[in-house]
């Protein structure tokens, strides 16, 4: 049985994860998320969507009201498997009386990393995150960016198969962010799975293979970036002339006119041509026809908007940040 579950293709397979605080505050209303092995997965959503709660449930920091599924082939909450997972929480803090090297040694010991490996990993990872020269300095003297780098090194000390990072670029400057992105790509290259929770959509877009959009405690969209964006295209037709007389006709084709731009949603070429014909028949000059693919931000905004119109099935659902 164990062998079978260990062989699942999903590094993370969360099924119907629910969390209710108290009796009424529903943070997660039945989340299903699948993360493939060796991929970078991004979890995004507006504030209060339940992202951090979901991450904390994965890491056993918060106990779910209900949860099925597996992480690295073991049920959610399996303590032993945590030895194979690296975790950087949001707004993490380490004891100020420790030096950088001691922080790594301490947390790695708690993760059951043997002494000799702790020493070698510590030196290697501090080098990797650019903190070697600060290894013996008490961390109360570290800047936020340095703490973030140290936190990432801490998450990698046990040479994990799955790395869960909650806002890993928080506090980093643009150069530091780029370095983190490179590091994530390198980790993927080493066959590790990265679960990323970030509100910086552009960053997720740059590195993630797959993403899930969490809204109001539910997964609104999930898939590869291509899957999420391929059907979310619109054409923007620039024109010069007065389109008011044919506005109703254009709207009947699904278009919307804003000053001198007609936006036609979807990729239906016949509809685009019909709209262009309509404009030309009215003597309006076409200046440009531009296909516009939605960004992750557009998709998120669209998902949030859709959820705002049609809230989750649980009437009392009220997304909160615990």
């Amino acid at each position: 049985m164990v062998a079978i579950t260990e062989m699942t293709n999903w590094a993370v397979d969360l099924i119907d994860v629910r969390k209710t605080y108290g009796r009424t505050i529903q943070a997660l209303s039945g989340v299903n998320v699948q993360v493939g092995r060796g991929e970078i997965f991004g979890l995004l959503g507006p504030n209060g969507a339940g992202k951090t709660t979901l991450v904390k449930i994965m890491m056993t920091v918060v106990r779910p009201t209900h949860a099925l599924g597996t992480i690295l082939g073991r049920p959610i909450g399996h303590r032993g498997k945590l030895a194979r997972i690296g975790y950087l929480p949001e707004n993490h803090r380490f004891p100020g009386y420790l030096t950088g090297a001691r922080v790594l040694n301490y947390y790695a010991a708690l993760a059951r990393v043997p002494g000799p490996r702790r020493r070698s990993n510590s030196a290697r990872l501090l080098q990797r995150v650019g903190m070697s020269t600060w290894a013996d300095t008490r961390i109360e003297k570290y800047s936020k960016g340095m703490m973030q780098r140290l936190g990432i090194a801490q998450a990698l000390m046990n040479d994990p198969d799955l790395i869960v990072l909650d806002e890993p670029t928080d506090g980093l400057d643009p150069v530091g962010r780029r370095e983190v992105r490179q590091l994530l790509v390198e980790l993927r290259g080493e066959g590790k799975t990265v679960f990323l929770n970030s509100h910086l959509l552009s960053e997720l877009e740059m590195v993630c293979d797959r993403v899930a959009i969490l809204v109001g405690g539910l997964v609104a969209r999930q898939g590869t970036l291509r899957e999420l964006t391929e059907h979310t295209v619109e054409y923007r037709i620039g024109f010069s002339g007065d389109a008011q007389p044919i506005r109703t006709k254009l709207e009947s084709l699904g278009g919307s006119v804003d000053r001198s731009v007609l936006t036609v949603p979807g990729g239906d070429v016949d509809r685009i041509n019909a709209a262009i014909d309509c404009l030309r028949a009215a003597g309006i000059r076409i200046e440009s026809v531009m296909p516009h693919r939605f960004s992750l931000e557009d998709i998120l905004v669209e998902a949030v908007g859709r959820t705002a119109v049609a809230p989750p099935t649980v009437p009392s659902a009220r997304p909160v940040r615990p």
Partner: peptide, 14 residues
């Protein structure tokens, strides 16, 4: 404290 306990609880220790 939040941010401190999270890291420790995520270790393989009951």
């Amino acid at each position: 404290e939040r941010g401190v306990i999270d890291v420790v609880l995520a270790k393989p220790l009951s």
